[in-house]
Amino acid sequence: MPEPSDPVIEHPPIGDMSDYPVGGGNDGPIVVANEFADVVVRRVETRNGMRLDIWSPRRGTRVMLDAVALDCLSFQEPELITQLLARNPGQ
């Protein structure tokens, strides 16, 4: 059983040893990155339904959000996101 911080790569190409999953079209994970952060996002089916799995390789953290949580994020004020960004994770 993989550790919670380890990515689960579905159908990786044989011999691929990259740190990030390779693009798999509509079925594979998506890597979103810039100079400040990078995340791997993928859709996963759990026994409680569909979730969006968001993994941060740099931090080794992961969160899985369902449709209700994602909907809640969509109507937040930008100031809330600014407050979340100001928070220092890990302290």
Rank of each mutant, 00 (worst) to 15 (best):
I54G: 00
D71S: 07
C72Q: 11
G28H: 02
V39L: 05
T46D: 01
V63D: 03
L85H: 10
G15S: 01
A67T: 00
N34T: 05
E79K: 14
P57F: 10
Q91S: 14
L70H: 08
I81F: 15
R51K: 12
R58A: 15
G28Y: 05
R62L: 07
M50V: 15
P12C: 05
V68K: 13
P78I: 13
Y20R: 07
P78A: 14
N26H: 07
S56M: 06
L73E: 06
R42H: 12
S74Y: 10
A33N: 07
M17A: 10
M64Q: 15
T46V: 11
T46K: 06
M17N: 08
L85W: 09
R87V: 06
S56E: 09
D66W: 08
T46C: 13
L80C: 06
V44G: 07
P29F: 04
G24F: 01
V63Y: 06
I54T: 05
I30V: 11
E79I: 08
R47Y: 14
N34V: 00
V63G: 02
P2M: 04
R47W: 12
N34D: 15
V63K: 08
D19T: 00
I81H: 04
H11V: 12
V22L: 12
R43M: 07
Q91H: 10
L73I: 08
V63W: 01
E35V: 03
R58L: 15
G15Q: 01
M50L: 10
V22K: 11
G24W: 09
P78L: 14
G25S: 04
S56W: 10
P7N: 11
P7C: 08
M64Y: 06
A67E: 14
P12N: 09
F36R: 10
D27Y: 05
V32H: 04
P4S: 09
S5C: 05
S18P: 03
